[in-house]
Amino acid sequence: MTGSAALAETLRKVFKDEKLDGLIGYAAGTTPLRPRPAVFTAPGDFDAAVFDGFCVQNLATYLRRHPDRRMGILVKGCDRRAVTVLIQERQVAREDLFLIGVPCPGMLNRARLLTEFPGLETGGVAEEGDTLTVAAADGPVSLARADYLLPACRACRHRVPTDVDLMLDAPPFAAPEADTSLGELTGGIDGMERRERAALFAEELSRCILCYACRNVCPFCYCETCFTDTLQPAWMTPAPEPNDIFFYHFNRMMHMSGRCVACGSCAWACPEQIPLHLLFGKITADVAELFAFEAGLDETTPQPMSHFSEDDPDEHIG
């Protein structure tokens, strides 16, 4: 894949040849750093198709909106894993999907780039090889792509989607593969005293406004009625009081164990830049350690939390 014109042609061809009802991908947004999810439903739609280092949002989130339709979907490594989890959870059927894989170059931290280089919103970022050229106020600046990856992407070891129906060429830009792991990223939490850990989360979560972007962007938060919204029983008060904010995030974290594919969409979507990857990275790293399991790698290995095995670890039962 060399550019969006080639991408548009490829996707358009797939859409026609496979007689798809729709194809979920990314389209150019209104500013350079904001490509956006799109459902292409007509050949003319594909002119807007793009793929770059800002296509963070996990597209699998949109799949359940199109029941009984044959859908194509562009998948990075994490989107592909999310599709697998949704198949395992009987939310989508593999035969209804046409998966178009794209080897992921590692997604970029837009918020950080915009903070460091305020002019980027108009100037944009040129991506080539392992280098980013940003249009800073006083001239172009070259940056190492690896330095500006989102935390979840720095730890990702599954960038290339597997078992796809069509694999696109790798984009001509990418960061070297993982320089850290979820365990390392979140390891600091283990070393903390309880009070210190509580203080960390109290500080970070104090900004939460309960906008639920983290929940709504997540491919796995598809409950018809979230525990946040049930009235009988009312598990939490819907006002953003500290206890309720804690309750929300830690319960959602529990619901993600063995399911989270560490795509980082939640942390990326958060308007308050709460480092949610600490929560979800932690639960994912713990599941990997305790159950030797990573979500979404294959359809046949059952999720540890929805499956009982005689040799499940049980130290916590005391």
Partner: peptide, 9 residues
């Protein structure tokens, strides 16, 4: 609405 996530941002 096809892309809207229905969040409160």
């Amino acid at each position: 609405a096809a892309a809207c996530l229905g969040c409160g941002i």
